[in-house]
Amino acid sequence: MDHVIDVRGMVKRYSGRAVVDHVSIKVAEGEISGFLGPNGSGKTTTIRMMCGLLTPDEGEGTVLGLDVRKDSRRIRSQVGYMTQRFSFYEDLSIEENLNFVARLYDLHPVRDHVRDTLEDLGLTARRRQLAGQLSGGWKQRLALAACVMHKPKLLLLDEPTAGVDPKARREFWDEIHERAAGGMTVLVSTHYMDEAERCHRIHYISHGTLLASGTVDEVVSEAALTTYVIEGPDLADVMAQLTGAPGVDQVAPFGTTLHVVGRDADLLGETIGKLATDGFTVRPGVTSLEDVFIQLMAEPRETAA
């Protein structure tokens, strides 16, 4: 088994519309893969097809060496899947939810597993509290803890850190890396750029089509964008001048600087050169992953495909 996830040409249609359109993804063992894309681009649908919760209309492949079509039941019991929407029982306490999961996975002894998980989470004192009363961030942490309890070899996480505070997010990612080092493979969808940058590889999907795959550096360099950083007093005026100018695809203020991004390096250089330069400093900048994503999102489907 060289790839833990190896799916090809996955298609899912809802009332005739392909919401996932021939998506192929490979994830190697021990790798942390980021899954990115705008809202409604098909991330959740793709993940559900991978763990056997949705039957693909087209496409084939393996997950954990098991056929996604024929072995979906075994796949389901071997991966740890964290749903985007909190889907544990709000009318059960934290402990009861964990008991339920531990028993269904046949973890022995149940009590020790649950106790350890509660301790890891730091929820031992609140274990009798109903899950529905937890804050959003704590719900996420409970859900994550529950889906790793049976020590799956593959984790599929659908926006696990949405609404989680920065410190908890940092801890979460440290833990993910720790587990990956121990051989666990992770596919995680996210909207956060800093999280994308902590992934070994990223996959970017838009309108159901996979637009970019690779390491962060690969994705950035493949996008072949040129970036300038402008610093100076009256940035609002400069921004107005540059917006829509030839060669300029993005203008975005970042604190006291302005990021100008374009696909055509020559045209962009020309436009920047024509700016009244007194009082401003213009220097070439490093294109960020976010610049690339904004660019990908802005491009119409036809040119992107």
């Binding site: 559900r48 899947y81 929407r85 909190f86 544990f88 029982y89 269904l104 996975y105 046949d106």
Partner: peptide, 13 residues
């Protein structure tokens, strides 16, 4: 309706 079905189905029952 509560969205717990997705989880129940992904558990080994």
């Amino acid at each position: 309706e509560r969205g717990t079905m997705e989880n129940l189905l992904s558990l080994p029952a």
